[in-house]
Amino acid sequence: MIDLRLPIGIFFILVGIIITIYALVSPTYIPNITEHINIDLYWGIVLLIFGVPMTLFGWIAEKKAKASSGDRPSDASNK
């Protein structure tokens, strides 16, 4: 089975990219407060900070599992 960190990481990278690019192209501030905070930009970066290492660790684990067991599926490798 695929290492779960891989799809989760890729999901948050994709969503992070979508929100970050949107925030850069058309800055939107938190409505109904006085401060001008481009929350989409900050939160998009937070999603990327979460997504990138998740993907990396998942990818490394997948590679290791494949190397150690030939083409055997890596059921127990995603710890």
Binding site: I18, I19, T28, P31, N32, D40
Partner: peptide
Amino acid sequence: AKYYPAGLLGL
């Protein structure tokens, strides 16, 4: 509805 801008609202 009150505090999420577009983007964050989708999330």
